[in-house]
Design a protein around this nucleic acid. Structure first.
Lengths: 112, 112
DNA sequence: CTAGAATGATTCATAAATAGCGCATATATT
DNA sequence: AATATATGCGCTATTTATGAATCATTCTAG
């Protein structure tokens, strides 16, 4: 009926997701919050929090980041204020970068 | 007619997702990769890469991290090797933490 | 040791994400 | 300026994640 249909992921991406999940669990435990607590505050189900902490790749980044915020885990090693600052700086940087990338179809650089 | 059906997210989580999307776009542009290039390498659609770079909350963390890996964006400011090291360290830490959190109905720590 | 509670793991219906298209616009190169 | 390409953003069909309920297991407190 339903195919496993698993998608392929790089080890790096997998490790990153698993690490993030572990950090969330660690932060939650240190704050002495139960899974149910966090789920309720984040507005998601208990099972989803569990999957997030397991580092499953299918969870939406919105849910993951929201849970991370609730357990007080600093994303990008930045506090809320610093994060917003980073944002505006990144906005500036992006305006300076080219809006479109030209891939020379005639000139293919496929070196590496 | 599709309902927005938006979930509520904290500003912190939103900022983090948007920032990550911008960093991905920045890294992609600097590497002179087109959206199509990245989409093909990541095994996802062009539209999804676009949404990821816009920082939309609905994208799966697997897709986001995979794309980040492809454009060479270091997650958690760590290279693949360092990431794996972090992972094993985190595993150790988690074994030391309590496996279950006792919901202190009598005692609430809500300090932050 | 025991009881109560949190966690882990399934199942299923439903909601949502994703792919794949096509078209309009913006952009870079000549 | 012309042209070829990348990008942005609709749309629909399909795949997938999510929520809810349930049960087994592990843990903590007494």
């Amino acid at each position: 009926m339903s195919k496993p249909a698993q998608r392929s992921y790089s080890g790096y991406a997998r490790d990153a997701a698993e690490l993030l999940g572990m950090m969330i669990r660690s932060a939650r435990t240190e704050r002495e919050l139960t899974v149910s607590d966090v789920a309720e505050r984040a507005g998601v189900s208990r099972g989803l929090v569990h999957r997030i902490e397991k580092g499953e790749m299918g969870c939406s980044i919105g849910a993951v980041f929201e849970v991370a915020a609730i357990v007080g885990l600093p994303l990008f090693e930045a506090e809320p204020t610093a994060l917003t600052r980073h944002l505006s700086m990144m906005r500036e940087k992006l305006t300076l970068l080219p809006k479109a990338v030209r891939t020379g179809t005639t000139r293919v650089k496929d070196d590496f």
